[in-house]
């Protein structure tokens, strides 16, 4: 349950015109950038439903790209983001689909560069977002917490090992979500934490056998 804040009401200071369709788009882009870990060489954005039909007028596409390039929701670069050199350095395109099985403001990101990755997320209102899928794994990342994400070979004892590292640093776990392709195949772990994640934890987890991918996804500010 999100702790409500005075600043949910009198802010954010943001680039207009819509908290869900502009600020939410920027924050989705920022989150995808954090998960991918770098600026991708190539990206396809697929916008669904309301994002697809009213996104242009709301600057949703600009917002998504600005987030990928690391702009905050109040950046004055958002408006002309496609004219910037950083945007021109990326090979990008936009697709649109009406699909009532998806959230009204859903976006799929197909990223490539050093590696390929598919990320899906929704802009759920008032600038809040959720990352719902990374590759084939269901996730629950809101950007509200620092989040540790790992992919590993499904086997007994992994949750215990990882949580021990976290416990040793005296960090509280706010939520934990696991998913897997099938028994013994690739699995995902998504741990939301109160407080900062020290580099040592990431290093320790990276060094565990059968861990393929680790990301420290910092919470979104503002």
């Amino acid at each position: 349950m999100k702790q409500r804040s005075l600043f949910d009401i009198i802010s954010p200071v943001m680039t207009g015109p819509s908290s869900s369709h502009t600020a939410g788009a920027v924050r989705l882009g920022l989150m995808v950038r954090n998960i991918y870990g770098e600026v991708p060489k190539k990206i396809t954005f697929k916008l669904y439903n309301s994002f697809a039909s009213t996104g242009k007028g709301h600057g949703s596409e600009k917002g998504l790209m600005a987030g990928i390039l690391g702009c905050s929701v109040d950046s004055d670069k958002i408006k002309n983001i496609f004219q910037t050199q950083e945007a021109k350095n990326i090979e990008y395109n936009f697709e649109y689909e009406q699909n009532l099985d998806r959230h009204p403001n859903a976006v799929d990101f197909s990223l490539s560069g050093c590696f390929n990755m598919q990320i899906s997320g929704n802009s759920i209102g008032a600038g809040n977002i959720e990352i719902t899928k990374i590759d084939d794994f269901t996730t629950k990342i809101s950007g509200e917490f620092n989040t540790l994400l790992l992919f590993y070979k499904d086997k007994p004892g992994m949750i215990s090992k990882v949580s021990t590292y976290i416990q040793n640093e005296n960090i509280n776990i706010a939520s934990l979500e696991c998913d897997r392709n099938a028994k013994g195949e690739t699995a995902s772990m998504c741990i939301c934490l109160d407080g900062e994640i020290p580099l040592s934890i990431i290093k320790n987890i990276e060094n565990l056998d059968d861990v393929y991918f680790v990301r420290n996804i910092r919470k979104l500010e503002g």
Binding site: I10, V13, M14, T15, P17, D74, D76, I78, K79
Partner: peptide, 21 residues
């Protein structure tokens, strides 16, 4: 009008009602 020009405003409580407060 600044909001619809994609310039910076404070959502209060939302971007679509940012002019009143």
């Amino acid at each position: 009008e600044e909001n619809l020009r994609m310039n910076t405003i404070a959502a209060c409580p939302t971007a679509g009602s940012c002019g009143i407060v």
